Amino acid sequence: MRVLLAVSVVALSLGCARGVRLDSAVAGMKPATGKVYSNEAGEQVTIIPLEPHDSKKALLEFNGTKSELDGKVVIASVDRDRGTGYWTKWRGRTQRFVTVHDRGGFEDLILSPAGASGYTHLKPDTGRTAALKVEKVFARYEEAEEDGDLKPFLAFDRKFWTDQAEKELGEKLAEANKACGSKMASTIAWDTIPDPILDKLSIPSYCAGPLESLQQLCSRSEEAKRTVQQKVQTVECRVDAKAAVTLEAQKVIWSVTDGDLIQAEATTTYFTDNL
């Protein structure tokens, strides 16, 4: 009877404890010594490595970033290619929101939060690090996981990523129009870009090529500016069977493929010869 009672008590205590779910992303792990990074803008990132270290996992906590990551604790995979990168699955894509570089003994954390086209720098915050309670952050992640708070951010979100691409490309367009004194428009032919390609490629980077070349041309001469103003009204980016750049009735059609695009020098040469 005593044995049965003891087993029941142990089973009850295990069942009530957080972090014992077999499907938990932190099952079998525990927090190691963490560190807090911050900057004068009030952005804060807390990094807590998880043991065992060969799991190559860490928890990241975000505060003051003015993004949808604020107040959240997420799990990240760690790699050490060109700095220490922390990769997080977010809205169906694996993103590197945080990278830490050791620049000769000075740590530089580069933060590019969800929905941001730029990045900011943070440095170690000794005061906040000294006050850090890693167990509390670990418990917050377990609670969010169990309560389903992070679930809405795990599935692939096409609208989020298309909106993000439009925003980033719009910034490149503004730079090109400023350099050329023009009023060009840019479009992305989303009907040519299925989810697997959107998930795989950085569409803003791929689609920026012709805008960057036009911007460079306009910076060379007033004649180039006038030519672009007269002959280019729209730049369309699309995914096609073959990488190409063509000009049709004041419309630049920029085609990229899965992993290929016309390189910058060839793009500039095309505009020089055809505008």
Rank of each mutant, 00 (worst) to 15 (best):
R2N: 11
L4S: 15
L4V: 15
L5R: 09
A6K: 08
V7F: 14
S8W: 08
V9E: 15
G15Y: 07
G15R: 02
A17F: 01
V20D: 12
A27Q: 14
G28D: 10
M29H: 14
K35D: 14
V36L: 05
N39P: 00
A41G: 07
E43N: 08
V45N: 03
V45Y: 06
T46F: 05
I47W: 06
I48N: 10
I48T: 10
E51L: 12
E51W: 06
P52Y: 10
H53A: 15
D54V: 09
D54A: 15
K57M: 10
A58N: 07
L59R: 03
L60W: 09
G64C: 02
T65M: 01
T65G: 03
K66I: 01
L69E: 03
V73M: 11
A76C: 02
V78E: 10
D79K: 03
D79E: 08
R82S: 15
W90R: 06
G92I: 02
Q95W: 09
V98F: 00
T99M: 09
H101Q: 10
D102I: 08
G105K: 00
F106C: 12
E107Q: 13
D108K: 09
I110M: 07
S112N: 11
S117G: 09
G118Q: 05
T120F: 05
P124G: 13
P124M: 08
G127V: 15
V134Y: 15
E135F: 13
E135M: 11
K136H: 14
K136D: 15
K136I: 15
V137Q: 11
F138Y: 13
R140I: 05
Y141L: 06
Y141V: 02
E145C: 07
E145G: 06
E146W: 11
D149F: 04
L150K: 05
L150V: 04
P152D: 07
F153E: 02
F153M: 04
L154W: 13
A155K: 09
A155L: 05
F156C: 06
R158S: 12
F160N: 01
F160K: 01
W161T: 08
W161G: 11
W161P: 13
E166D: 11
K167C: 01
E168H: 01
A176Y: 03
N177F: 06
K178R: 14
G181R: 03
S182F: 03
I188E: 00
D191N: 12
T192G: 07
P194K: 06
P194I: 07
D195L: 04
P196T: 07
I197Q: 14
L198G: 03
D199N: 15
L201W: 05
L201Y: 07
L201R: 02
S202I: 00
P204S: 10
Y206P: 00
G209V: 07
G209A: 13
P210S: 04
E212Q: 04
S213R: 00
Q216P: 00
Q216D: 08
L217D: 02
S219D: 11
S221N: 04
S221C: 02
S221R: 02
E222A: 12
E222C: 03
E223S: 14
T227C: 06
Q229L: 04
Q230H: 15
Q230A: 15
K231D: 10
V232F: 09
R238T: 06
A243R: 00
A243T: 01
A244P: 00
T246Q: 09
W254S: 00
S255C: 07
T257G: 09
D258S: 12
D260Y: 04
L261R: 10
I262V: 13
A264S: 05
A266T: 03
A266R: 02
T269C: 00
Y270I: 03
